[in-house]
Amino acid sequence: MSEITMKTADTDVQSVPAKKINKRMVKFSRYFPLFIMLVPGLIYLLINNYLPMFGLVIAFKDINYAKGIFASDWIGFKNFEYLFKTKDAFIITRNTILYNGGFIILHTVIAIGVAIMLNEIKNKLMKSFYQSVILLPFLISMVIVSYLGFAFLSVDIGYLNKTLLPMLGLEEIQWYFEAKFWPYILTFIHIWKSVGFFCVIYLAAIIGIDKEFYEASTLDGASKMQQIWYITIPSIMPVIIMMTLLAIGRIFYSDFGLFYQVPMNSGAIYDTTNVIDTYVYRGLMQLGDIGMSAAAGLYQSIVGFVLVLISNYIVRRKNKENALF
């Protein structure tokens, strides 16, 4: 991206007094190595992310491959209609926001708690053990999680119905047909699977905190809780804010595996398991229309984008350093 600066330097040559040019050149040469550092990463983003964005036009087109993507007919917002047309649109939007909102709050609080506790543990062996084990669920794919879920929840061979519930003297439950259980099941599985991941990130941030602060506060007679509250949390606040902002940006997206595979695509529980991604997937399975799926993606992105801009603006007004951009 050094090109950008070079271009600015070039175009300004005629109009700007010589002194200023000199100053610019000095500034430029001083930051040249930093710009070089930016180059590989930005080139990758250009290829991997920005070039394919031409695909966003697909959302507004009636694709015909014989004509090619760019020459296909424009059809305005017709591809978006199915996302808003029915009563289901309300249910899926509600589900998506409630689940993701709940997930963000819960996994942040739990992961920070676990990270703080891990950081407190003195026994190195045990510490390493806890950390590895809590990360374990993060390592397996959602398909496997869905099989594990099935091993517990299956009506006639599941562990719960076959062993645990009879032991407690309870009736067996048709898990895959009772919508009311699923908000808890899905939240539980999400937390179970992702806490290890968030914990690793917060732990890295906590480890990075300067030990001097703690030592000074101990001398002042601060309790553990006070230290956590006044040192640890504020120190990792930038990470917390960043993680939350990023999660808000994707609040209209949801973990497809969690909402599709884990409930075994069981229709009877759609009221509490159908989210935008699964709705789109199921609706387009037969049609295979890439225009409509592109439309869904664009809709999700734009909502997330707007929400992030707003939240970032709020963060920025409070503390400029913590803002994302």
Partner: peptide
């Protein structure tokens, strides 16, 4: 630059365009 990086987290061209690139 930060925004350029961040923007990629929200918008993507989708599977087909990426594949074509």
């Amino acid at each position: 630059f930060a925004f350029i990086v961040f923007f990629t987290l929200l918008f993507n061209g989708g599977m087909v365009p990426t594949y074509l690139v």
